[in-house]
Amino acid sequence: MARRRVRLFMGELHYRPEIRLHTASSGDVPTLRELYLVLDEDGQRVACGAVRTNVEYLTGIPEMTVRDEAQHVLPLLPWDAQLEELRAIVEQQRDLSVTIRALIDTTLFDGLSRCAGVPLCVYLGGRFTGGYATNQSLFWGDDATLIDLARAYVARGFADLKLRVGVEDFERDLRRLARLRNELGDGVTLSVDVNGHWSEREAEERIERLTPLDLAYVEQPIPAGDWDAMARLARRSTIPLTLDESVASMGDVRELARRRIPAIAHVKLAKLGGVGPVVEAGRLLKAAGIELMVGQMNEGTVATAAAVHCAMALQPHRGELYGADGLLDDPANGLTYSSGAVEIGNGPGLGIAFHEQDAELLWEMTV
């Protein structure tokens, strides 16, 4: 019987200097920190998954709590079991954080599709299309960098740009958007992400003022939790709405499907707990007539590749899959970005390669 080696790694990832993750909810984030779960059998790679850990602003879970949980939970799992059996066991572990659940779930789905000899999207019932269209995000920063970065994205074929707003006053946001529209022209799709930093009244007034700029959508204009307010706003808004923080659990997914609020649902592995929950949520929402966006949390190649496969399987209205673009020290490779899309190879599983020598080993066991 093959011996299985299970290892947990950590990596610190950095973008090129001109790309700085900074939103109204995250603040300034200079480094992406990720955990990688890797399974090998007799020296051959069986599975690999990843999750970003410094996302307390989304999950409410401190980074060190996530790392401690990983090193406590992983040794207790029966790693000598079949992968499908392992997945069933993990699904029954109700006390797992969403972050650790996403890490394990993504790893096991990579392994299951590798064993089946097919790309993950095919294992999920979809069709391999070589990648998916994606937007690019313009984070908070000075105006000159904003314009330069926007022009660079357009020159590379990315004509769907989302501006992060709500960090400072709305008048500055409005001026920056107007300048982007003037500089880039009508051939570029613009949208904004408020990260829930407006009140319902502010949202109504500001959406009306944004309407002449021909935005594709306004993302999370008001805080999550007040479904009645979101429904009122969505039905009155002159610009389509996208919900991100409002879709933070399967309970939220079911509530949105029940209410059929006319908005785009932005689903992410890091919020819902991995590949399985994202696919389940996507199918439920599509059945309710709600359009989808599949996204990621500014993550590296491994986690972003999982989101790309979910997008290929679900065929959402939009993709937000830019996370691995522009990273300087990602310990994995296999994604390329050009002409408005992220491209991925058609190998089994996630179709990417993880280079363990470029990450820090935290824990290991062999069964």
Rank of each mutant, 00 (worst) to 15 (best):
L328V: 12
S237V: 15
P221W: 10
S237L: 10
G225R: 13
A263C: 01
A88C: 07
A24G: 08
T23W: 08
C115E: 07
L243Q: 05
H197V: 12
F158D: 10
R3W: 08
E34S: 13
C121E: 00
A263S: 02
R45D: 04
D173P: 10
R209N: 06
I207V: 03
H266V: 14
E360Q: 13
D80I: 05
G43I: 13
V247Q: 07
D329M: 01
A216N: 04
G141Q: 11
V90Y: 05
A203T: 14
R45P: 01
E85Q: 15
S338V: 05
G141L: 10
P30N: 10
V294Q: 03
T189H: 14
V122M: 04
D325R: 03
R209T: 11
I239D: 03
V29A: 00
V253T: 06
A133G: 11
A265Q: 05
F109D: 01
D228F: 02
P240E: 08
L21N: 09
E168N: 08
E34D: 09
R232L: 01
D160M: 11
L180G: 01
L39R: 05
R164S: 06
E34W: 00
R235S: 14
R172W: 15
L321N: 03
R7N: 12
L8W: 05
N54P: 04
D330K: 03
G126H: 06
M230W: 06
D28N: 12
E299Q: 10
H14N: 14
A2C: 15
D186S: 12
A155Y: 08
N298Q: 13
N54V: 02
T53I: 09
M293T: 04
L180M: 02
S191N: 02
G319P: 01
L284A: 07
R156S: 05
G276I: 09
L108A: 01
R235D: 14
L335Y: 07
